[in-house]
């Protein structure tokens, strides 16, 4: 069955996915709002950057993050000058990488939800003298709920399923960067197939359950969000 190191990897994976999803909901909301409302010429470029992680192989993201966040990279020099040290091989580094890697899975559903709301509810709120902030929290957010549900589930699940990026910048440190996907990889490489099966089958069950939950709770999500 599962060993202590397996459980530690599972706990770490959920911590990483939880922190990443929370950060993404906070960071993703203004980005999604801007993308949904703007008429700026930059909309296409920003949308493309947000979508990049869908297309890029995780090895590319991982490799560039390793170089950029390292002591010779621009991000690494910045974090070192701020006294934070360099990010690779740390939990914080994995969070930064995961935020970038799962960004489109959170921003796009929220953006779609915002776009689906349209102008009229906002205009109606404005005629009732609601401030923009008030409108956002009392009108926009409740209407965008299906989008937020999709974003939360996909952001979380996508981070749990992350492998290539973590492999490239994690350094496989127990309790800090050794997540479930890396642990499974290790078991397979070490020819310990029985251990690999326990964790791998667990991932299949988990992923199916999460998606089932999403489609059950949010059956119209695809249309509305």
């Amino acid at each position: 069955m599962l060993t202590a190191t397996d459980w530690s990897a599972i706990r770490l994976t959920f911590e990483l996915a939880g922190v990443t999803t929370l950060l993404l909901l906070v960071l993703g909301t203004p980005i999604a709002w801007w993308l949904a409302r703007t008429r700026s010429a930059w909309k296409g470029a920003v949308g493309a950057v947000v979508a990049l992680p869908i297309v890029l192989p995780p090895t590319v993201i991982g490799f560039y993050l390793l170089v950029a966040m390292g002591p010779n990279g621009s991000v690494g020099k910045l974090t070192e000058s701020l006294g934070l040290g360099v990010l690779p091989f740390t939990f914080a580094g994995l969070v930064v990488a995961s935020v970038f890697y799962s960004l489109p899975f959170v921003v796009q559903p929220i953006q779609n939800a915002f776009e689906a709301i349209g102008e009229r509810p906002l205009e109606a709120a404005a005629t009732l003298r609601a401030s923009p902030m008030d409108t956002f929290f009392s009108v926009v957010l409740p209407l965008a709920r299906p989008g937020y549900l999709t974003a939360t589930v996909l952001g979380f699940a996508h981070t749990v399923g992350e492998f290539g990026v973590v492999l490239m910048i994690g350094g496989n440190i127990p309790d800090k960067t050794r997540v479930v996907s890396v642990q499974i990889y290790d078991h397979v490489e070490a020819m310990d197939y029985a251990q690999a099966h326990w964790l791998a089958a667990g991932m299949v069950v988990f992923s199916f359950a999460v998606l089932l939950l999403l489609y059950t709770l949010n059956p119209t999500g695809r249309r509305r969000a």
Binding site: L66, V67, M69, G70, P71, N72, V86, P88, F89, L167, M168, I169, G171
Partner: peptide
């Protein structure tokens, strides 16, 4: 990969 960690200066 071990080499890559050192050559990139991260280790």
């Amino acid at each position: 990969q071990t080499y890559q960690f050192v050559s990139s200066g991260n280790a």
